[in-house]
Amino acid sequence: MNAPLNPAASGAAAPREEGAAARRLSFILVFAPFALWIALVILVPQLNLFFLSLREKVGPQVYALGPRNYTELFGESVYVLTLVRTVVMSLLATFATLIIGFPIAYYIAKIARGRARTMLFMSCLLPFWVSELVRVFGWMLILRETGLLSRLLQGLGLVDGPVELLYNDVAVMVGLIYTSMLFMVVPLVSTLDSLDDALVEAGYDLGGNGFVVLWEIVIPHAKPGIVAGAIIVFMLNLGNYLTPTLLGGKNSQWFTAQIYSQFITRFNWESGSAFGFVLLVTSSLIVWLALRASGQTLSGTIGKG
């Protein structure tokens, strides 16, 4: 029964393969600009950096291959401490952004309606209409010793003299949270939006209080958004340069400032590249760990968010 059918089947397969080839070609054509962009803008510079980082300076304009830039970085406790400090502060700032952003996102997604919703969303977006530099200067005007907040506190009689609120880790945190809030709120709103109100009501109806409903229903539902937002915000914090440099105190060294000073102040591109690579590997590692711990995949979170 089957035998006579086979030639017909294979005959039909040939044009189908041709069609597939044509589709593949058109896919390659469509994909080519993107691949080129990725290669030129991301891959090639990274590889270049990597090779630079393996160059050891022997004398003026003489270089050799070797790991000295890395051993120097890890041999100098100042640099390692700065890296650890930057990672820890970035994680803290990410967590704080989540804690502050979650209620905002919940309000936008579930409670606010119509105009208020748009307004709230816009107000999250508003800071991004000006450059980061202007935003940071705004905070400097508010937090400095002769600034708005200090005067307000004095005016209210809460403090005796002027207080310096700038140049410390808290100021850096405030700046980081402010700068990255939107990137937390947007993925959260989009996942919370898809949460059926009935699930929340059912959570209450079956005996849960607000905390239980949040913990067992809302947060598990929002997990992809939480992870996506946290990854984006963490990367932004880790890679931020302006905010920690301008708001930070004399002790608030950020790792990116180290990279900057290696590249720009020291003209030591080799060691700057090594610093950059260490930062890249560190952040990738932490994101990977976070994804593993939360049982999410990159495509399932960033892709969705």
Partner: peptide, 8 residues
């Protein structure tokens, strides 16, 4: 200078 900046 890096040590001065980071040290505390």
């Amino acid at each position: 200078l890096d040590k001065v900046a980071a040290g505390n």
